[in-house]
Amino acid sequence: MRSEITDQELAESLFIVNRHAKTAPQPKHLYDIKKQAISKLLKENKARKVGLHFSEHPKYSKQHSTLLIEVGGYYFHIPAEKKDFDHLKHLGSVDQAYRNPKPKLSLSKAKRILYDYLDWDQPTKDRTTPASYQSSPSFLGQRNITPWNQRHKRK
Rank of each mutant, 00 (worst) to 15 (best):
D7K: 10
Y75M: 07
N18Y: 04
E81D: 14
S3V: 04
D119V: 12
Q134S: 14
H53V: 11
F15V: 00
Y117H: 07
K34S: 15
K104W: 09
I38Q: 01
M1R: 03
E12W: 02
K40Y: 11
L41S: 14
E70Y: 05
L67I: 01
P137E: 07
P27F: 01
K109Y: 05
P123R: 00
K43H: 10
T124Y: 12
K111P: 02
R2L: 15
I69M: 08
T128M: 09
W148G: 07
D86H: 09
K35Q: 15
F76D: 03
Y115E: 04
K153Y: 00
D32F: 13
Y117A: 02
I113T: 06
Y98V: 08
T124L: 10
R112L: 15
K83H: 11
Q122K: 08
E44G: 03
P137W: 01
N149T: 05
S108C: 08
N144T: 07
K28P: 09
A131E: 10
K43E: 14
D116S: 15
P79Q: 05
M1D: 05
E70A: 03
V94W: 12
Y74T: 08
D116L: 12
Y133I: 02
S138M: 05
P123M: 00
Q96G: 12
D84A: 06
I78M: 10
Q96A: 12
K82Y: 04
I38Y: 02
R19V: 10
Q26H: 11
F54R: 15
G141I: 05
I145N: 00
T128W: 03
T66P: 02
V71T: 12
D95R: 08
K46Y: 10
L107F: 09
K43G: 09
K22L: 06
S3K: 03
A131T: 11
H20P: 02
K40N: 11
A24N: 14
K82S: 07
F85N: 01
I16Y: 02
R99L: 08
D86C: 06
P79G: 07
R48F: 09
D119P: 08
S93N: 03
H20L: 06
L114P: 09
G72D: 09
H90W: 12
G92P: 07
D86N: 12
P25I: 06
N149W: 07
A37I: 10
A131R: 11
H53P: 04
A97N: 15
G73Q: 04
E81G: 10
T124A: 15
P58C: 02
D86W: 07
P79Y: 06
A21G: 01
P130A: 06
I16T: 04
G73H: 03
P103T: 00
L88C: 05
S136Q: 11
L105P: 01
S39D: 14
A24H: 14
K125L: 14
A131M: 09
I113F: 03
T129V: 07
D84L: 02
Q96D: 13
H57A: 08
A37V: 15
V17M: 01
E81W: 09
D7R: 06
S106R: 03
K125T: 12
